[in-house]
Write a protein that binds this DNA or RNA. Sequence first.
DNA 1: CCTACCGATCGGTAGG
DNA 2: CCTACCGATCGGTAGG
Lengths: 192, 192
Amino acid sequence: MTGGYLKGRIRREDILSAAVAVYGEAGYHGSSLREVAKRAGITHAGLLYYFPTKEALLTAVLERRDIEDAERLQLGAPPGLHVLRHFIALAEHNVAHPGIVDLYSRLAAEAVAPDHPAHDYFVRHYQLARDAALASFQMLADEGRLRAGVEPGMAALTFIALMDGLQVQWLTTPDDVDLVGSLRVYLDNVLA
Amino acid sequence: MTGGYLKGRIRREDILSAAVAVYGEAGYHGSSLREVAKRAGITHAGLLYYFPTKEALLTAVLERRDIEDAERLQLGAPPGLHVLRHFIALAEHNVAHPGIVDLYSRLAAEAVAPDHPAHDYFVRHYQLARDAALASFQMLADEGRLRAGVEPGMAALTFIALMDGLQVQWLTTPDDVDLVGSLRVYLDNVLA
DNA sequence: CCTACCGATCGGTAGG
DNA sequence: CCTACCGATCGGTAGG
């Protein structure tokens, strides 16, 4: 009988979805296992049966997010303009799912502390994002499609930083910020 | 005898400085009055004699920051390129004082929640920053000193968002991010 | 998965 | 400004 396994997997997913929502609202340190558990329809002791510590729950949330993003970004694909367009498509998807942006912005700010359990995750995350953007900007430069004076490394760093900064401002005052439009304009301005 | 008043003012400043440090490390919700008080050399009940609630302390911290920033940015000055240079000078000052960047990044991310006590502060803060940048980019555009196709409103939004996004990435991986240099390059690229 | 519990910590108050 | 206290909440464990 694999019924027990299936039920367990579904329960796990329910808990992770609840955790994403709560982390987005309250951050990691500001959230409680009891609140996550309540939204998943169990007690906090029940949650700890599936994820043995608060940190293990966070790790599982980040791992699931990585898998989803990697699929969406097609990070295996060869570098080029379409990779940068995939970043913008990801931003477009995020705008339609504010909870994800909440989660990411809150955790990124918390995790600047070196002893935060998500610190290493974000160090890696930024490096991967920058490297992916860099390879694509580099390829565009080699093809002479980058505007004169635009250095690929700086363009990559700026592109990623811009995405993050726009997200926080968009969450704070959604009506004043055109997240996706701004990214498109930036990319257009950097191309020849 | 004004001695009592002076001592009180000094004590207040000590508490605010301690709060800036703790907020930077733990955010607002993640910090405790006991930790702030300990660093200021009093008990948490003593702190509440000066600031009656946790929220009142946060408000006082933000007010002091506003005053210091307004001085540094010379926000009363007429718009123009030198205002944008003042923003970069502020970033330069911040890089030399990481605690301030910590505080700001953590609070900004927390305060996207509409019921956060600093939410209105950040709504106002972003509006002021965007408006100041916009007036300056607009003036540059009127003088024909903006590169063709660069729209002042978008340039202002992007400029502020870039500052914020770079700060979080710089805090996470200081060696990989040239905060001030990136801002300079962005500004140069937008000018004719 | 739950009930019941633990030690620790929180913001705030009373009363000096 | 402090001591002493309050009710609430936290992550985690025992034992089933």
